[in-house]
């Protein structure tokens, strides 16, 4: 596709979120953060519809609840939990970095350069480990402890 100057478009588009190069962890954390954010938004919209079935009286509520007890919805619910844990924990890191914390102070650039991204990376790793532990514990609760 060429533009009015007859130049060929080379825009990455949505592919630019998913990959497009050999980048570090933070860029993939960014993508996952946006995707889980969109997923949670979708869930909230569905959630309003589901709880809205209360308006149809107790029968309609129990009928819709019976549908959501099925296996597929249980997996869906677990995915919402995973998204919530990741988005929440990573959100704390982003909140701190966007307020200028965790990244040190400006300094004279001396080669080899060390960026602020590397300075906050340990926090990202701790948060990822924490997310994995919580997700595993949640999975245990979802599928093992509460299944009859």
């Amino acid at each position: 596709m060429t533009d009015e100057k007859n130049h060929l478009s080379n825009k990455l588009g949505i592919w630019g979120w998913l990959g497009g190069g050999r980048y570090g962890l933070e860029r993939y954390a960014y993508t996952l953060h946006r995707l889980t954010g969109l997923g949670l938004l979708l869930y909230f919209i569905l959630h309003i519809f589901v709880t809205g079935s209360r308006l149809g009286g107790p029968e309609s509520w129990s009928a819709s609840m019976a549908v959501y007890e099925t296996g597929l919805f249980k997996i869906g619910e677990f995915l919402v939990f995973v998204a919530f844990i990741y988005h929440g924990l990573n959100g704390i890191r982003l909140g701190l970095t966007e307020l200028g914390f965790l990244m040190g102070k400006p300094e004279r650039p001396l080669f080899p350069y060390r960026s602020s991204v590397m300075r906050q990376r340990p926090v990202l790793i701790v948060i990822m480990v924490l997310a994995v532990i919580l997700i595993l514990a949640g999975g245990l609760d979802f599928f093992v402890l509460t299944s009859h």
Binding site: Y23, G24, E26, Y30, H33, G100, V117
Partner: peptide, 26 residues
């Protein structure tokens, strides 16, 4: 900017643009 950090990673002069943007937000 949601701090993907890739700009700072590839900058050949150690400018660390992601850092500058977060400091500006602060």
């Amino acid at each position: 900017c949601h701090f993907a950090g890739a700009c700072s990673e590839v900058c050949p002069k150690g400018v660390d643009p992601a850092f500058a943007i977060q400091l500006m937000k602060q």
